[in-house]
Amino acid sequence: MADPQSQQSYPMSANFASPWYMLKEDNLRLTSYNALASVRLEVRYRFVDTSGCLIPSQEAQTPNTDRTAKASIFITPEGWLLGGEVFVSGAAPLIGQTYVVIEIVRGVGSSALPLQVIAAGYVSAKQPLPFPGVQITSSLDSGGAIRSIAGATPGAGAEISETVPTGARWELLSFGANLVTSGAAANRMPVLTLDDGTTIYFRGPMNVNEVASGTWLNYWTQGLLVSAAGPSNVINGSIPIGVRLGAGHRIRTVTAAIQAGDQWGTVQYLVREWLEGA
């Protein structure tokens, strides 16, 4: 790395337009983490160059949709950064779905050297992120995005397994699925398990026998004290309050006495989601 002190001196005799003086080699980098399709980010900012000219600029980025990082470097003039903002111009992400980091970097390309983070936080259709001078927030600092997810329908005789995606953290709020039992006589007893991708750390059993030739509507929800059966084969079970699942963790059923002709289906669950680097 070149010594920044040796490259150029700060213009001490000049009138400072802002505390954010940037050399010619310094640029702005936008890094986004996004989980929603069709999101487009706009970046607008103003500079005062060394001749005193006010220079407005506008840039754009289309983030990835799989929570992976996407970085864009915007070439800036030598001078003072007055300020700017990042806002969403496409789609309508919720808080918890599109997280951005704005940095001053030296150079361009993947080898650009990060010098200072000047803003970081979620942006939504209604909430731009201003910079600089705003409090930097973690991607885990918000209330998260509420999502209702349709899970996979497993093959006959197979169990349900849903995985927290890479780059996400979930709080499981509720989980529902129907078990259609075949005519084979057996008392099925579903258990909802949480694991870290390998090892189970929670089991939530339904303490009700689900007998042959029936359609059993199973719902696990935070805070219920006991498993109980209601009318129309509705069965309620409990999951821990506030349980957080990291990327790669799984929500699965393990059904005692499941038969080859049994069919799990209508898998639907409610989570609170945050973005998290991994």
Binding site: A35, A37, T65, I149, A150, T153, P154, A158, R250, T255
Partner: peptide, 26 residues
Amino acid sequence: CGGRYEPIQADGMEYYHRCPPLSAAE
């Protein structure tokens, strides 16, 4: 595994499948 799913959810977000472990029947 025979699992069926929509790669894009109704809310516009992508769905990533991972095969379940074997059930007792399997």
